[in-house]
């Protein structure tokens, strides 16, 4: 299990060691309507504990505030976790010209299992030509002794737009964090646009230039389409 989930190797889920397998999907298309083109959600497949719901805007959303006819979907977790050994997968397909705001209702708490197995989340995103995805996941909190691998794979067609935020909290209040690794691959029209791995809480020397004793309590970053800024109140 641990060998398969090393950073830098593309691993396949191993059902034998997985405690909870979940595969949720959301897809959108743009269709003409009486009031102009609207984004329709064509697939909304929840798989416990990953629950997807169509929602309305409850707070300012960066990049799309003036766009009519967009779709909003919220991801909620119906159970604690992922816990060591769990395998989550989320597929997001944004059709040509459509706009999806995908947010998360709560933070994700990464927890360890008794046997130290690695938990893994795979998020596959595909945005077709002139489509827009605003992805605002909640904070990911790495609890003590957790061991988690987060894989984000994004394919953008020519002219597709993506705004993506990530936020990590290293441990709860006064708690040392476990291990949290992340791989992000963003490709546009077959070209590598962004490729970054992150290894937090692992062996001390693997920490990315963060001096001992002054580890940050969190890390947050966003990818903004050219010419768009993330309003301050949208940052946590």
């Amino acid at each position: 299990m641990t060998a398969a989930a090393t950073l830098g190797t593309r691993s396949t889920p191993q059902a034998g060691s997985a405690r909870m397998l979940a595969h949720a999907r959301v897809a959108t298309v743009l269709r003409a309507g009486p009031g102009g083109p609207r984004t329709h959600v064509t697939t909304l497949r929840s798989d416990p504990p990953l629950a997807l719901r169509q929602t309305i805007a409850t707070r300012p959303e960066p990049g799309v505030s003036t766009t009519p006819g967009i779709a909003r979907v919220s991801l909620t977790a119906a159970a604690a976790g992922p816990i060591g050994g769990d395998q989550y997968r989320l597929d997001v397909d944004v059709g040509a010209g459509s706009t999806l705001v995908l947010n998360e209702v709560s933070a994700t708490l990464l927890l360890p299992s008794h046997d130290g197995a690695v938990s893994r989340s795979v998020i596959r995103i595909h945005v077709e030509t002139a489509g827009t995805l605003i992805w605002l996941p909640g904070a990911v909190i790495a609890a003590r002794r957790c061991d988690h691998l987060n894989e984000v794979q994004v394919e953008l067609a020519e002219g597709a737009r993506l705004l993506m935020r990530e936020e990590f909290l290293l441990g709860r209040h006064h708690e040392p964090c476990g291990r949290l690794r992340q791989q992000v691959r963003i490709r546009q029209a077959g070209r590598s646009l962004y490729r970054q791995d992150l290894d937090l809480g692992g062996p001390p020397r693997a920490r990315p230039g963060w001096p001992r004793g002054t580890e940050p309590s969190g890390h947050s970053s966003s990818w903004t389409p050219r010419g768009t800024t993330l309003p301050r109140r949208c940052r946590s």
Binding site: R205, A206, R207, P208, G209, W210, P211, R212, T214
Partner: peptide
């Protein structure tokens, strides 16, 4: 990026310098 790290107070002595350097080398 050592100068801005010193300005930000993250590197201030030999111990924090060594940690900065090993982190920088490994990433």
């Amino acid at each position: 990026s050592l100068e801005p790290s010193i300005t930000a107070g993250r590197v201030h002595d030999l111990t924090t310098l060594e940690s900065f350097l090993s982190g920088r080398a490994a990433t």
